[in-house]
Amino acid sequence: MKIKLKRIYETFSPTDGYRVLVDRLWPRGISKENAHIEEWNKELAPSNELRKWFHHDPKLWKVFSEKYETELKEKGSGKEFLDRNKKQNLITLVYAAKDELHCHPLILKKYLENLILNDKIS
């Protein structure tokens, strides 16, 4: 299984594979028809409290990354997501953040890839 990232505002492509919106809030200006997503998984997104605390402040990136990874481990939603989608060849994590260097899907992708690599999915 391969995982890639893509902003929801980029052009949809059939080669994106299984598209999953991983934001807690629906992206502005995008209709559900134009989103071309198979799943909206809010459980993979940071909690509302963590999202509001971070507020996309690059100065908080390191601490945010650690807190978000801890949330992912505690919730177990990453393993559940991978177990449910283990037959997918390609999963594209779709998100709305403008700052592509300081956004939670970067952390999520790495976390999911580590689960796959360490065979923690059944």
Rank of each mutant, 00 (worst) to 15 (best):
K2N: 15
K2P: 07
I3F: 03
K4I: 07
K4C: 11
K6A: 01
R7L: 03
I8A: 02
Y9P: 06
E10R: 10
T11K: 15
T11P: 08
F12W: 14
S13T: 10
S13V: 08
S13M: 07
P14E: 13
P14Y: 09
T15W: 10
T15Q: 15
D16Q: 10
G17I: 07
G17A: 01
Y18C: 03
Y18P: 04
Y18A: 04
R19W: 04
V22H: 08
V22R: 11
D23I: 04
D23F: 05
R24I: 01
R24V: 04
W26L: 02
W26P: 05
W26T: 09
P27A: 00
R28C: 09
R28W: 05
G29I: 05
I30N: 12
E33K: 15
N34V: 07
H36C: 14
H36M: 12
H36N: 12
I37S: 14
W40L: 05
E43A: 12
L44M: 00
L44S: 00
A45E: 01
P46T: 06
P46S: 08
E49C: 02
E49M: 03
E49V: 10
E49Q: 13
L50I: 00
L50P: 00
R51H: 00
W53G: 05
W53H: 06
W53Q: 02
H55N: 15
H55Q: 13
H56R: 13
D57Y: 06
D57F: 08
D57Q: 13
D57L: 07
P58N: 11
K59L: 12
K59Q: 14
L60Q: 06
L60P: 00
L60M: 08
W61A: 04
K62T: 14
K62L: 13
V63S: 13
F64G: 03
S65W: 02
S65N: 06
E66L: 14
E66D: 13
Y68R: 08
Y68Q: 11
E69I: 09
T70A: 12
T70D: 10
T70M: 09
K73M: 10
E74L: 13
E74G: 01
E74A: 11
K75W: 13
K75T: 15
K75E: 14
G76Q: 07
S77D: 15
S77I: 05
G78Y: 06
K79E: 15
K79H: 10
E80M: 11
F81C: 10
L82D: 05
L82P: 06
D83I: 09
D83L: 10
N85W: 02
K86V: 07
K86P: 04
K87S: 14
N89C: 03
I91K: 01
I91F: 02
V94T: 05
Y95R: 02
A96Y: 02
A97Q: 01
K98E: 04
K98C: 00
K98T: 07
E100C: 00
E100R: 12
L101T: 07
L101F: 08
H102C: 01
C103K: 02
C103T: 03
H104I: 06
H104R: 06
P105I: 00
L106V: 08
L106Y: 04
L106N: 03
Y111H: 15
L112W: 06
L115I: 14
L115P: 12
L117G: 15
D119Q: 13
K120D: 12
K120G: 09
K120N: 12
S122P: 11
S122E: 14
S122F: 12
S122K: 15
